[in-house]
Amino acid sequence: MLHSKLTRTLIVGLTLATSVAFAEGTAASNSSTPKLACPAGTMQTGNLNDGLYCRKGDAKASRGDAHGPYASYFPNGKKSAEGQYVDGFRTGLWTFYSEDGQVRGKTEFQGGNYHGKHVEYFPNGKQRLVEAFTNGKRNGLSQEFSEDGKIVRQAQYRDDQQVAEK
């Protein structure tokens, strides 16, 4: 129950972050805009509010796939998310932050899908949720923890279907 609501909330947040990443616009050229290490053949685009990313193709015309590092920022200037795109898809480890700079979650992606470990953290830095994914589906052990680190729920998943719970 609680787990489903939290998962839906995170998925909605990630979906919004992705759509924001493709908002039109070119990064401002002032010195306060961080520079990404864009791969050869790409150009940095976006802005601090919507996210900075590298784009292959015609970045000035807002065409082409995101490819390379991505970073978005809160209005206070602190980073809200960082990760990597490959050919338009989130790939590798993405990290999500709270406005005060604390890590709130880490998710591994492959081809735009959750693939690998997904971890959410309490404000005290302890793990709140740890899940395993394969091609966007929960596979393996899923654990929820209390703020003091005790396991409050544990379930086993296969192809996004719960097969056991403790």
Rank of each mutant, 00 (worst) to 15 (best):
S4A: 10
G116F: 01
E165G: 03
F89H: 10
N76K: 03
A132C: 10
A21F: 01
A71P: 03
C38W: 06
S29T: 15
L93S: 10
G105A: 14
D65F: 05
V163L: 02
P123V: 02
S31C: 05
T45S: 15
P123A: 12
D160W: 01
K35V: 12
D87Q: 14
G25M: 03
S4T: 11
Q154K: 13
G41W: 03
K56H: 03
G77Y: 06
K79W: 05
A28F: 07
S80N: 08
G83I: 06
L129P: 01
Y85E: 06
A132I: 06
Q161V: 15
F122M: 04
T7H: 12
R90P: 03
V20T: 13
G41T: 03
N135P: 00
K5G: 06
G149S: 03
A27Y: 08
Y157R: 07
A21Q: 02
D148H: 04
E131C: 05
P34V: 00
R138P: 08
N30C: 05
S32E: 13
S98W: 05
E99I: 10
V152R: 10
L129I: 09
T45A: 11
N76E: 05
R128T: 00
D50R: 08
K137H: 04
G112F: 04
H118Q: 12
K166S: 13
G149P: 00
A164S: 15
Y73G: 00
T18D: 14
R8H: 10
T107E: 14
L141V: 10
G51I: 01
Y70D: 04
A155E: 10
V119M: 13
T7P: 00
R104I: 04
E120I: 04
T45N: 14
R128N: 07
R153Q: 09
G149C: 01
F122H: 05
R138V: 09
K79I: 13
G101N: 08
G92I: 08
Q84T: 14
I151S: 10
C54E: 02
P69E: 10
E99Y: 07
A132H: 12
L52R: 06
L6Q: 13
N30L: 03
